[in-house]
Simulated scan of single mutants.
Amino acid sequence: MNGLLAVWNDCDHGVLDKYEHWYMNEHLPDRVGLPGVQQGVRYETPNPSPQTVSPRFFTSYDLDDVSVLEAPAYQAALRNPTPDTQFIMAHFKNMCRTIARLVSHEGRAAGAWVVTLRLGQLQGADKPRYADIDAWQKVLHAHAPAAACRWRLYESVLAAPTSAQVSPVGEPSPEARFRPGTDSVAHGVVVIEHLRASDADQTLNDWLSLPDVQALLHPSDRVNDFIEMTRLDSRALAQIGY
């Protein structure tokens, strides 16, 4: 899983039933059914309510490599959204969409409770801020979250400061034209997985308080916790003949 497509978002409360039906019956199987997409995992913030702190949802797609998103099949899906996709996208809010390459990781088993860090999130092309990915890698290896069963560190391909070439994965998604506002993107992403809610709380309360971690965090970085809702694997999808 050398690539990641990570999406954080909210959705208008009045269309949540349609949102869930679309995601589970159309969007998730369509995306996981594309070549090179290994699995899609949907998460929700614990104890959601209309007053829930943003973002409510987090979705990750594990990719063979980020080049998967340059392939004709994926680009065609982006450029020819279904009517339901166009409708639902109009109700997305606070969207952060990040395409990233795996930098480092520890642990093998996945966990249902995750803490995500969006590092150096860009609010607009005129206000870039880049995370120190090398420093984060050193801290994660030297002071790994003790309660986690796995962690992964990624660097965005959308916001690399040395990138001189624009490619399809370096452009805004064609679907963004249906969403209100402007998508943001994170320069770095950390996904920390846990077996239990108490383990995630330990990461949030103890690990994030370590001086070496605090030294790297910036006020614009975003830390959120989520619980897994569903996971769709490409091999399972193939077995049912989707």
Results as ranks from 00 to 15, higher is better:
residue 1 M to G: 10
residue 5 L to T: 00
residue 6 A to L: 14
residue 8 W to C: 05
residue 11 C to S: 07
residue 14 G to E: 09
residue 14 G to M: 11
residue 15 V to M: 11
residue 16 L to V: 14
residue 17 D to L: 13
residue 21 H to I: 11
residue 24 M to E: 06
residue 25 N to M: 09
residue 27 H to F: 12
residue 28 L to Y: 05
residue 38 Q to T: 11
residue 39 Q to G: 04
residue 40 G to E: 03
residue 40 G to A: 09
residue 42 R to C: 08
residue 42 R to F: 05
residue 43 Y to N: 12
residue 45 T to E: 10
residue 46 P to N: 04
residue 51 Q to I: 10
residue 54 S to N: 06
residue 55 P to M: 01
residue 55 P to F: 01
residue 56 R to P: 07
residue 57 F to Q: 01
residue 58 F to R: 00
residue 59 T to H: 08
residue 62 D to F: 13
residue 63 L to N: 05
residue 65 D to E: 09
residue 66 V to G: 01
residue 66 V to T: 02
residue 67 S to Q: 08
residue 68 V to R: 03
residue 71 A to P: 10
residue 72 P to G: 11
residue 79 R to E: 15
residue 84 D to Y: 01
residue 88 I to E: 01
residue 89 M to Q: 02
residue 92 F to Y: 13
residue 95 M to V: 15
residue 95 M to A: 11
residue 97 R to W: 02
residue 97 R to Y: 04
residue 100 A to L: 06
residue 100 A to K: 00
residue 100 A to G: 11
residue 102 L to P: 10
residue 105 H to S: 15
residue 108 R to A: 14
residue 109 A to S: 12
residue 111 G to D: 01
residue 112 A to T: 12
residue 113 W to R: 11
residue 115 V to D: 00
residue 115 V to A: 03
residue 115 V to N: 02
residue 116 T to H: 03
residue 116 T to P: 10
residue 118 R to P: 02
residue 125 A to Q: 06
residue 129 R to K: 12
residue 129 R to L: 14
residue 129 R to D: 01
residue 130 Y to L: 06
residue 132 D to R: 10
residue 134 D to G: 13
residue 136 W to T: 01
residue 136 W to S: 02
residue 137 Q to I: 04
residue 138 K to H: 13
residue 139 V to L: 06
residue 143 H to L: 14
residue 146 A to C: 12
residue 151 W to Q: 11
residue 153 L to I: 10
residue 153 L to M: 10
residue 164 A to Y: 00
residue 165 Q to P: 03
residue 166 V to C: 08
residue 167 S to Q: 10
residue 167 S to F: 06
residue 171 E to Q: 15
residue 172 P to W: 03
residue 172 P to V: 07
residue 174 P to T: 11
residue 175 E to R: 13
residue 178 F to V: 02
residue 180 P to Y: 08
residue 182 T to D: 07
residue 182 T to S: 15
residue 187 H to Y: 06
residue 189 V to N: 04
residue 201 D to V: 12
residue 202 Q to A: 15
residue 202 Q to E: 09
residue 206 D to N: 12
residue 206 D to P: 06
residue 207 W to D: 03
residue 208 L to W: 02
residue 210 L to F: 06
residue 211 P to V: 11
residue 216 L to G: 12
residue 216 L to R: 07
residue 220 S to Q: 14
residue 220 S to N: 14
residue 222 R to A: 03
residue 223 V to Y: 04
residue 225 D to T: 13
residue 225 D to P: 04
residue 228 E to M: 15
residue 228 E to S: 14
residue 231 R to K: 07
residue 234 S to K: 05
residue 235 R to M: 11
residue 236 A to K: 04
residue 241 G to S: 14
